[in-house]
Each structure stands twice: as C-alpha cells, then as structure tokens.
C-alpha cells in the first residue's frame, strides 16, 4: 500500500459508511447539500478531521474529536474518508 501524500489521491479512500468500525480515518471530501455540509463542518466534521465509526444502525454513529454524531446513511455515503493504518477494503 502506498502512503497517500495529497488529498486528491484516489487510492485508499472510501465512503464513511464502509470504513471499519472503531478505527480512525481522515475526512477527505464532503459531498452533500450545502446546508448539511455547513452544519457538519460546524460540528467538527470538516475536511481533514479525524473520524471513527462507532456504531451502525439505521443511521451511522460516528465519533469526531469526542463528539458523538448520528448521521443518516444517505448523508454518510457522500462523506469520503481515508482510513488510517490499513487500506480500505
């Protein structure tokens, strides 16, 4: 596995919902409605933030810097992350 050096590098990125439970990833891109993106950034989920999925129900439960967020599955689909430590899939 190559270590990605820039956020444009498509290797090893995946939607937030596909990242492994409990392991940290870095947010690479947020693609969703502008209002939602704005809200997510204010909640600390911005490009570059560390997130980890802590639960999967009808929504995704994620940890962002100690804040627990419940995110709709459709929304989580638009959040691309780069898992750390191991390659995605």
């Amino acid at each position: 596995m190559t270590t990605p050096t820039s956020r444009e590098l498509p290797v090893c990125t995946c939607p937030l919902g596909d990242s492994e439970m409990g392991s940290e990833s870095t947010v690479v891109a947020i693609e969703c409605g502008e209002n939602e993106a704005c809200r997510l950034r204010a909640l600390g989920l911005y490009e570059g933030a560390q997130v980890s999925v802590v639960g999967k129900r009808h929504c995704l439960l994620v940890d962002v810097n100690g804040t627990r967020l419940a995110l709709g599955a459709d929304l989580a689909e638009g959040i691309t992350v780069r898992p750390q430590g191991r390659a995605a899939h």
Binding site: G33, E36, R39, L69, A70, L71, G72, D74, L75
Partner: peptide, 10 residues
C-alpha cells in the same frame, strides 16, 4: 426529508 445530523451529547 433532510438527512439526519444529530449530536448525541454525553
């Protein structure tokens, strides 16, 4: 329906 974004406070 807007996607859910909800903080679950401690």
């Amino acid at each position: 329906v807007r996607p859910m974004i909800l903080e679950l406070p401690p």
